[in-house]
């Protein structure tokens, strides 16, 4: 089980990690500033295994891969949204952060709920209710299963 952190529509990558932190030498040094402009307590309260849930167009804006990278480094298990911006989506898969399109779930959470995601089945359990998510295209699922693009290149799988 993981806790839900809920965000709105059109969350952009500047909001996920602002440009003034992009040149910190490592992702670990950046991660404490994730979502700083929206929720100053996010980075200190999120626990490994928690979920980010958002409305439409999550991760719009810049191509900064640091955005999915800080969420992964904080232990976010998956990001579930009604839709994603394409560069963020690709970057997340490439670094092994699951990004799941789920049309119904965001309407039924406000943050703080406990839920569980069964990635292989593409199903979220929230209390007694199950929400079905869209499965990734096979090509991308393969990259994700390997732990990202580098791991899959190493395995000669892509």
């Amino acid at each position: 089980m993981g806790r839900v952190f809920k965000f709105h529509t059109d969350v952009d990558t500047d909001q996920i990690i602002a440009s003034q932190y992009l040149l910190f030498p490592t992702i670990d040094e950046m991660k404490g500033h994730a979502f700083e402009s929206l929720d100053t307590s996010f980075a200190s309260s999120v626990q490994p295994g928690d979920y980010v849930v958002a409305e439409e167009n999550f991760g719009c804006g810049s191509s900064r891969e640091q955005a999915p990278a800080v969420l992964k480094a904080l232990g976010v298990k998956a990001v579930l949204a009604k839709s994603f911006a394409r560069i963020f989506y690709r970057n997340a898969i490439n670094i092994g952060l699951p990004v799941i399109v789920c049309k119904d779930l965001p309407d039924h959470v406000t943050g703080g709920e406990e839920m569980e995601l069964d990635m292989s089945e593409g199903v979220v359990k929230l209390g007694d209710t199950e929400y079905v998510c869209t499965k990734l295209p096979a090509y991308m699922q393969k990259i994700l299963d390997q732990g990202g693009l580098i791991a899959s290149l190493d395995n000669g799988e892509v």
């Binding site: 810049s62 191509s63 900064r64 891969e65 560069i87 690709r90 970057n91 490439n94 670094i95 090509y139 990202g148 693009l149 580098i150 290149l153």
Partner: peptide
Amino acid sequence: TGIGYTEMAAILGTGQLW
């Protein structure tokens, strides 16, 4: 189009991208 740094590193090594 724009891409992340991991994919750019892959292009630098291979000259290709899907």
